[in-house]
Structure formats: structure tokens, C-alpha cells
Design a protein around this nucleic acid. Structure first.
Length: 267
DNA sequence: ATGGTCGCGCAGCGA
């Protein structure tokens, strides 16, 4: 089963690139972030024509997340079900695709260290953990895919000095991410690839992509049970090239459907 | 070089 995640930075601006990429790659499940669409504007029929069912949780203009699946979509949930007030932003959507529980997440950026939005980011990650605690178990096949807006380690940024005092690399953010992972999630790309310099996001400015000035902030976290079935993980840098690219590249995770404990993933 | 580029939507903010 092939799972992918991609922050498209406006689905309206990116639709041609996304359709082309889906036809070339044919993932079983594709998580999108930053659609910047209201639900009524989401091009579900266009994805249906490519063979994908979908669920979208959007607000228009900002944020917005979706899950596309060619192995079915059931039991969709928008936002958190953690007994607290609704999240004001559209940043997470859940669905069951075949036998796989999937979350597409767009973690808040944080803006500046100490900013209200920074505290919102840390709290948001706490709510994600609380939702997992309340509804799921790490023995189930489950993935949380998305734009985490956190570089887990120093090797995940092109320059540590360039990010001194910035969001995405602080101990508080990394600890909040660690708390989510402690639920029972594995960064399957990092399990398979040791080197630094393997990035998923490059700022549009200053030719950062061509200068290899990026960050690895998009990743697939797989439940412990599912991580045992991880076969291959890659970042599709080619999608960051050419005309009107997103500033993020798609991240792909391939799982073996015949591994004990996760048999029949796409049924 | 303390900037730069996108997307949204039409000024300036967010990333």
C-alpha cells in the first residue's frame, strides 16, 4: 500500500500539478494540506474521475486538509474529538482507507517563538496526542501524515545557525512532537535514511531549492504495528521543480500488505 | 545581500 502526503500550498493554484502527479504516481492514499479551499470548492469530482474518493476539511483562504483514497473512505472525522472546544482552524481530517486509519495534519506554523500562535501550535500537538489516546491504539495500522512544521533534529535543516531563535527547531516544539510519537508512532522515512540534507520543504525565496537550503518538516508517522511493514520511503524532489511548484515536495511511504499484523491493508 | 517569492485577494498578511 502506497501512502503519500503533500502540502500543495493552494489546491486551486496547484490542481494541474496534483492531477499530473497522481496519474504518474498512483498512490493508494494521498493526504493533502493547505488546500486553501472551502468544502464547496473542493474538486471532489475531478479526483473521482481519477479513481479517488475523498474527504476535505476546509475553511477557504487558509489551511484546509484532505484525504484521497482509491481503497475506500469510511468513518471520516474533521478536527479533534477530544472533549474540548472545536479547533478554529481546519488542520486535521481523519478517515479509514481500506483497513488503514489515516490522519492528514497541517500543524500550525507558530510564526514567532513566544507568539500566541506558537503556544497554539504546542497546544495543538497536545490535542493531537489526546485524540490518539481517546480513539486509537498503536497496535492498529494507522498513519498520521502531513506538514508538521517541525524539523525533528538538526540534521533535518540545511543550517542550524540560520534557524537560531526561529520556530520549527526549538526544544519545546521538538518535545511536543516527541510526545505525539511516544503514543506509538515511528518516523518511517528517518528509520530508513540516516543522512541529513534530505528535505521536503524549500522557501520560494532566494533560490533556496536550487541552493539545497531546505527543511524536512513533512513526514509520515506510522503506528508501531504498521512501521514493521515499512518497505520504502522517499521524498519526490522532482515535484518541487518546473512550473508553478508547491514549496513542499510529496513524501511517500510504501507498506507491505502481507506483513503479519497488517494483512489486508487495502481490503 | 538582514533581502528574496509565492498565494490570497486587492492591502498587506501569512508562510
Amino acid at each position: 500500500m502506497l501512502v503519500a502526503t503533500w502540502n500543495v500550498n493552494s489546491l486551486k493554484a496547484r490542481m494541474a500539478r496534483v492531477e499530473e502527479w497522481i496519474e504518474a504516481t498512483k498512490p493508494d492514499v494521498l493526504c493533502l494540506q493547505e488546500t486553501k479551499l472551502a468544502d464547496a470548492q473542493f474538486p471532489a469530482m475531478s479526483f473521482q474521475a481519477l479513481g479517488y474518493d475523498s474527504v476535505h476539511h476546509g475553511q477557504g483562504q487558509w489551511n484546509g486538509v484532505a484525504i484521497l483514497s482509491r481503497v475506500g473512505i469510511e468513518d471520516t472525522v474533521s478536527g479533534f474529538d477530544d472533549g474540548r472546544e472545536p479547533d478554529p482552524d481546519a488542520r486535521v481530517v481523519w478517515a479509514t482507507c481500506g483497513a488503514l486509519r489515516v490522519a492528514s495534519v497541517y500543524v500550525p506554523n507558530g510564526r514567532e517563538v513566544g507568539h500566541d500562535h506558537f503556544h497554539y501550535k504546542l497546544d495543538w500537538l497536545g490535542r493531537l496526542r489526546a485524540h490518539l489516546d481517546a480513539h486509537h491504539d498503536p497496535s492498529e495500522p494507522l498513519v498520521v501524515c502531513g506538514d508538521w512544521n517541525i524539523a525533528p533534529e538538526d540534521r533535518d535543516v540545511w543550517s542550524t545557525s540560520a534557524f537560531e531563535g526561529s520556530t520549527h527547531v526549538t526544544p519545546e516544539e521538538r518535545q511536543a512532537l516527541e510526545k505525539v510519537k511516544e503514543w506509538g508512532l515511528v518516523d518511517v522515512f528517518r528509520e530508513q535514511h540516516e543522512p541529513g540534507g534530505l528535505f521536503s520543504y524549500w522557501d520560494y525565496r532566494g533560490g533556496d531549492f536550487h541552493q539545497k537550503r531546505g527543511m524536512r518538516i513533512d513526514f509520515v508517522l506510522a503506528s508501531r504495528a504498521l512501521a514493521k511493514a515499512s518497505i520504502a520511503n522517499l521524498i519526490d524532489r522532482n515535484a518541487r521543480k518546473g512550473q508553478k511548484p508547491s514549496d513542499h515536495a510529496p513524501v511517500l511511504a510504501l507498506f507491505d500488505d502481507s506483513t503479519a499484523g497488517v494483512r489486508g491493508l487495502w481490503r
